[in-house]
Design a binder for these strands. Structure first.
Lengths: 222, 222
DNA sequence: CTGCAGATTGACTAGTCAGTCAATCGCTGG
DNA sequence: CCAGCGATTGACTGACTAGTCAATCTGCAG
């Protein structure tokens, strides 16, 4: 038992870690189970000794990580801090998660949280818990009066989470710069953007009727 | 020729429209070309008469629709309107696009804009154009002083677009309500949330040090 | 009526790959 | 030294499906 931890590496863990790298590099659908086995340095069949299917590997990766995030958000919410600081902590946690293991966060975002026809639907309840946890932070801010009452907490939470996930997507796709300073700066900027707003308080002008003179024409011609 | 438009339906268009429904229902990777042919009511081989591959169908759908969006954003930006109204128009256009053809927008978001290992990478240049077009609107607002200079336009654009895409994702996953009033309300709310911010101007408190007392611990234990 | 050209058909091929399984390995206790 | 058992191996199978292609159809021009 004790020897197993010193001499024999944890093959199951090795397979999971290899899967993260392979899924991130090639995508879940564009890699073979043999790619994961090769990356882990184990035989093909061993993957099926520890997991019942290729899907189960991804499910395991997602659930492990997502639970850590849910726990973190719950803990942040339980602290006695201003709402903006709580949201700053949530943003910081997610961004640090990406810095710490970009491959894993890439896999989770690309293959699960946005995959409406496969793993996203499967884990919808778990994903929703994150939205609800953020909404809870916003809701208490609304109740204490620091956040606008006109924006529903559920709606605000989606905007906040969406902004963060879009930043990760920008880093994943390499359309946003990825220096340490960029990651650190993003934590404050995203909170300032969503909580404080893009408009400059000194100069902000509220449009009395945002619809005036503007017609949406989404339909394709023809 | 004239008869072709009255009697013979445009089979190519029928295949594209059928593909939207099938891709939205089953996902690109979980459907067969025969599913698309059946849905369109044409023979399997005809799909390959009009398209060189299954991929080309999705590429066509994406490029058609994305170009319409790029044109719309460009046109909105060219108008002489306050920045907030321009962003309201962009949000309205994207949300109306979803209302008009939710299946197509679902396919575009799920299979392309978030698919970092397949179509997303292929169309990265096109996707980036949308970010840049939104950033251009923000940038002029910064220059005229109505938007904060401390938030880079490129960064603000990602937050804005991410919030909108998250709303669509919420509708796609059915975690947000989808009445006509919800769609209409979302147009104003998303602009109010991002431009005006979540915080109530009357009560807003700027945390002098958002980091105080908060430690990010993204690493998995063990 | 005839023949061409493009549209349409669907059976077939060729390749892929998730998952199985019987054999082997290596440790541990008797 | 042996028996037993979980860990490990990798060749193999069964199922699936993207893409091909030769045959057929249809409309029209000569």
């Amino acid at each position: 038992m004790a020897a197993a931890q010193k001499d024999a590496p944890d093959k199951r863990r090795m397979i999971l870690d290899a899967a993260v790298r392979v899924f991130a590099r090639q995508g879940f659908h564009h890699c073979r189970v043999s790619d994961v086995a090769d990356e882990a340095g184990v035989a093909y069949g061993l993957v099926y000794h520890y997991f019942n299917s290729k899907d189960e590997i991804l499910n395991t990766l997602f659930l492990e990580r997502w639970q850590i995030m849910l726990d973190a958000i719950g803990e942040i919410d339980a602290r006695d801090l201003p709402s903006r600081v709580k949201l700053r902590s949530v943003a910081g946690f997610i961004i640090d998660s990406y810095r710490h293991d970009p491959d894993l966060m890439k896999v989770i975002i690309v293959e699960v949280t946005r995959a409406a026809n496969s793993f996203g639907a499967l884990h919808l309840d778990e994903i929703r818990k994150a939205y609800e946890a953020i909404a809870a932070i916003v809701e208490s801010a609304r109740e204490e009066g620091s956040f606008k009452s006109g924006i529903p907490a559920e709606f605000a939470a989606m905007c906040f989470y969406g902004a963060i996930e879009q930043l990760l997507t920008g880093w994943i796709f390499e359309v946003l710069p990825r220096s340490d300073a960029d990651f650190e700066g993003a934590k404050d900027l995203v909170v300032e953007a969503i909580c404080g707003g893009l408009e400059d308080g000194e100069h902000a002008v509220r449009a009395s009727d945002p619809n005036s003179g503007v017609t949406s024409r989404p339909a394709a011609s023809g």
